[in-house]
């Protein structure tokens, strides 16, 4: 019984410590992100490299998946709208559900699966192979060189790729609107513009940025928890990715609450 209670206590303390460390890490990252001195040539180079690996390299696959998703999703959604006789709410459903909820969610899911896991492993390997120590010896701040550029490129990538995903879905929506409702393109755009709220678009961008921030911050944070043993790498990746998915759900719920206020 005592062991059981101790177990609960240990787990709670571990959880609290981990949460505190994550918050502290987040705070440090924010400070470095806002510090102009962070952005030296080495950091800029890493930002460009990371943008290439996170956003540009994935682009053909991303567009292909977006188009496929767009065809299925928009087809099903628009057909359902017609069957339920909710054609009058077409704009609100597309703007309020598809473009502000589904698109960011799908984008962040794809990036978390690809880049989040890669970042987590990369940082864990760097930690195990003492490359971070090497940076420290040459007075290169790991926050500036490793963490900040990756997080910044993550933020930019999610925002931009979400834009692409949304545009592809918009195109699919236009196609299906014409097929299902006989809606001309200009009428379709007008409906969307009427339903769109400028503040919602700002919230959408902020949401994407938050997603980008956390799907890169958490893998790096948990990658750094790896010890000097190679066997600690999969554990660090596992924990990191678990936390990434929890973070995605939490952000999604928070954004829903925020937009409903």
């Amino acid at each position: 019984m005592v062991t059981f209670i101790e177990g609960i206590g240990t787990r709670t303390l571990k959880l609290c410590r981990s949460a505190f460390e994550t918050l502290f890490f987040t705070w440090q990252v924010i400070l470095h992100l806002l510090d102009l001195k962070t952005y030296n040539k080495a950091t800029q180079l890493v930002i460009i490299t990371q943008l290439y690996f996170t956003a540009v390299q994935i682009l053909p696959l991303f567009i292909y998946i977006s188009a496929l998703m767009g065809l299925f999703l928009m087809g099903i959604v628009l057909d359902s709208i017609k069957q339920m006789g909710m054609a009058g709410n077409l704009g609100n459903i597309l703007m309020g559900f598809i473009f502000t909820e589904v698109c960011p969610f799908m984008t962040v899911l794809l990036l978390a699966l690809r880049s989040g896991a890669a970042l987590n492993t990369e940082v864990a390997v760097m930690k195990v192979s003492k490359e971070l120590d090497a940076l420290n010896v040459f007075r290169i701040d790991a926050f500036d060189y490793i963490v900040v550029p990756r997080i910044l490129s993550g933020i930019i990538s999610v925002v931009l790729l979400n834009g692409i995903f949304t545009l592809v879905l918009l195109a699919s929506g236009a196609l299906f609107s014409r097929m299902i409702f006989g809606l001309a393109f200009d009428a379709y755009i007008r409906i969307l513009v009427v339903s769109a709220d400028f503040s919602d678009l700002v919230i959408l961008i902020l949401k994407c940025a938050t997603f980008g921030f956390f799907i890169t911050l958490l893998p790096i944070r948990y990658g750094l928890t790896a010890s000097n043993e190679l066997s600690s790498i999969p554990i660090a990746v596992l924990t990191g990715m678990n936390n990434v998915f929890i973070a995605i759900v939490v952000i999604e719920v928070l954004s829903l609450i925020l937009s409903s206020i």
């Binding site: 040539k41 080495a42 760097m126 090497a134 940076l135």
Partner: peptide, 27 residues
Amino acid sequence: TDIPLISNLNVWLNIALIRLYHLSESR
């Protein structure tokens, strides 16, 4: 041997990293 080279950078970037970081020299 305990201070390894950075595995995800190529040779010239490993050497130039310090100049790029501390001196913010152009690439």
